[in-house]
Each structure stands twice: as structure tokens, then as C-alpha cells.
Design a protein around this nucleic acid. Structure first.
Lengths: 208, 208
DNA sequence: GTAATATTAGTCATCATATGACTGTCAGTC
DNA sequence: GACTGACAGTCATATGATGACTAATATTAC
């Protein structure tokens, strides 16, 4: 009796369809600028149905953040291989970040540019919220473990690896945040990838 | 508000899924040998749902007949072009029939081999029933109009074009019915296409 | 031959999912 | 500070799906 599985599949599919419509709307108009009616319209569903699949507008949005973070983290993880030196791993995830910035500008924007206040627990399901956190955590853990590995192999000299992790993260993040604002009048031209490479050089030499 | 269209689409899709499952089962086991439970199973739907889309087992089956007849007739129609001589048109639809026999053996089987008694009006929706008839009629009409055209162009000499139509139809049908029984012990080997060509020659010369 | 059993087309009470008019809230306007 | 419009979220209703059940027929057992 495969009807149960089929229905499960169809449910998951519908969820995806809603997410997909929400993505288009949110990417185009941001959290505040988008309405549930609009999303329902795009999904060719009634608004009530959205609430059958997502607790709130916020939950829908956080689900997208979660998606983005997952893509991001996977790109980092897939960019490195076990036989690399710690230094090369760091450069590699820097490049992965660049590719994410380049290939998924919309996700980059909602994840790192738009500050997304707090999402209250009663509006966003715990599972979804924590998946988002978990995915974000994986990136930082990856960096920390690379730093620790670098210390073990004698490549780096670091006292507090968590502090160093945050430093690396902040520095890299800073590059892309600036890059995203390139178009501002007051900002002189620069090449993002070159700035990133330069920054990675500096970061790495400072860790040695 | 596109929800209505979307639901219409999904309904049509579900109908197709059911037909598709029914096709597999009916082709494999025939009308009697197949059960609604089996079809429901394959479609990953409950039996009740089948009856939401089709009035009866017979209606499901007739829908397949209808499908087959439509394919058949379209192949005939598409095989000829207006600038052909009547004789060539006849040969062309003969070849189209051969292709149908060859490419859709299952449809050929349920349409021409299995005798499908009568389907009572209260078991099969009028629309579906008559679509099937209509499609079948198109083939015969096509033949008749070719014959008439042949008479007008002086290619053929026929008194009763409807009688002649049935003759052509019966002769061609006969070839494929025999062909389908090739495998019988008592039957000597022969090449179906050659037999068809030979038959078409005879038919055509007899019409002149 | 017929009683017991099995099979299966078709039904229907119940459940699951989807709908959109409606409510409450809040920001902007007069 | 009353009025308006926009919008997140609700809920009574409608639509669609389910499968245990019934009745009719076929098959087996005696």
C-alpha cells in the first residue's frame, strides 16, 4: 500500500513549491516588502495553505536562510580535501566563499547583508531554527578544526583557536560585505577576488 | 487567482496517472485479468479514488481504447499529404497501419485482437464512448474520401464507395490479424510487410 | 449438486487537505 | 484621536482521498 508514501512525497513537493515561490518573492522584495498573499498567488495556492506548511511568514523566511546556510556550508566542505595543508584548506574555503558570493548573490544577501533581527520561538519552529544554527555552526567548526590542525602540523601558532576562528571569519565576511557595497558612489573601484586573495594572504601570514 | 487553474491541471494529471497505471496492468493482463485493486496499487491511490475519475472498470478500459484509436487515426492522417495521388494515399495509410502495428503492439492488441463485447451505456460515460467511435469513424471516413477522390480523378472505378471502403478496411485488417498469429504452430513463416504490400497491390488493382 | 470460501467491482462514512472571507492589529492620514 | 488601508493569521466550509465494507459472482471442497 504505497499511498502513504505517495502522499508524503506530494506533501514534501508542495512544501518545496511554496519555498520556491517564497524565494522568488523574498529575493525580489525582502522580508518586509513581501506579503503572504503575494507568495500564495505565485504558488497558485490559497494563503491558508501556506499556513498548513509553515507556521508564519518568519518561518518561511528562516527556511530560506536555512537553505542558504546549507548551500554555503556544503560549498566550504566540498572545496577541501583531506590531503591539503591547513593553509591551503583556508585558501580553498576562502575561494568557496567567493563562489557562493558570486553564484548565489541572493542567498548571500539575505544571509549576510540583510540583518534579520530575531525570530521568536513561537513564530518559528524549533527544528527549523536550530537547523539554521546547526548549518552555520558547521562552517565555523570547519574553520576552527583547520586552525587546530594547522597548529598540530606546526603551520600555525595560535593560542586561542576559537578567537582566531572568529577573526578569520570576520575578516573574510568583511571583504564580501564591502564588495556588496561596491556600487556606492564614494567607493573606489576594486577587484573583489584580488581583495579576498590579499586578505587571505594577510590572515594566513598572521597565523603563522 | 490561479488556484482554480492549478487544481484543474492537477486533476487532469491525476487522471493521466491513473490511465497510465491502467495501461500497464491492462496491457499485461487484459480486461478480465486485471483488477481495480491492482490498478489502484500501481497508481499509489485508493480504489475509491479511481472511481472519482472513472465511472467503472469498463470506462477506464474504453478510455484506453479511445487513446489507441486516436493514435491510430492520427498516424493515418499524418502519413498522407494533399498532393499525393489517391493510389499513393492508400498505400501510405497502409504503411501507417503497419507502423502502428509495429510500434504500438499493445494498443493494436486491445483494439483489434481482443474482442471487447459491448460496453453498456450506464457503465461508460457517453462522451468517452462516442469519442472512441468518432476516432474510429475518422479512419474509415479517410479511406472513403480517398476512394471518392480516386474516382473523381479517374484513378478508380467504384460503384459503392462505402462498400469499397469496408473491403479495403477488412482486407488490411485481415493481414494484421493473421500477422499477430504468426507464432502459431500451423502457420508457415511470412513477412508481414511484404504480405501487406502484396495485399495493397491487389486491393488497388482491383479498384481500378 | 451444493455448501463453504475466495475474489473483486463498486459504495460510502470518515478523514485529509485546500480555500478565501474574515478578524485583529498597526502604520499612516486627516 | 477617529478613519483608512494593508496585511498576518484564523476558521468554517468545500473539495478530494481513503479503505473497510457489501453484494454479486466464481472457485473449491465435500
Amino acid at each position: 500500500m504505497g499511498t502513504t508514501e505517495r502522499r508524503q512525497r506530494e506533501k514534501e513537493q508542495r512544501r518545496m513549491e511554496i519555498l520556491s515561490s517564497a524565494r522568488e518573492i523574498f529575493f525580489a522584495k525582502g522580508l518586509e516588502g513581501s506579503t503572504m498573499d503575494e507568495i500564495a498567488d505565485k504558488a497558485e495556492l490559497s494563503k491558508g495553505t501556506l499556513y498548513l506548511y509553515f507556521k508564519s511568514k518568519d518561518e518561511l523566511y528562516v527556511s530560506l536562510l536555512s537553505e542558504g546556510t546549507e548551500i554555503f556550508t556544503n560549498m566550504m566542505l566540498e572545496s577541501i580535501s583531506q590531503d591539503m595543508k591547513a593553509e591551503d584548506k583556508l585558501r580553498s574555503i576562502g575561494n568557496a566563499y567567493y563562489r557562493f558570493y558570486d553564484e548565489y548573490p541572493q542567498y548571500f544577501k539575505i544571509l549576510f547583508l540583510l540583518q534579520h533581527g530575531e525570530f521568536s520561538d513561537d513564530k518559528v519552529d524549533q527544528d527549523i531554527q536550530s537547523n539554521c544554527m546547526f548549518e552555520a555552526g558547521r562552517s565555523l567548526n570547519l574553520i576552527e578544526s583547520i586552525l587546530n590542525e594547522g597548529v598540530e602540523q606546526g603551520e600555525f601558532t595560535i593560542k586561542d583557536s576559537w578567537q582566531a576562528t572568529l577573526f578569520v571569519w570576520a575578516a573574510a565576511n568583511g571583504v564580501f560585505t564591502i564588495a556588496a557595497e561596491k556600487h556606492h558612489e564614494f567607493m573606489k573601484e576594486f577587484n573583489t577576488k584580488e581583495l579576498l586573495d590579499f586578505t587571505m594572504d594577510k590572515i594566513i601570514s598572521s597565523l603563522k
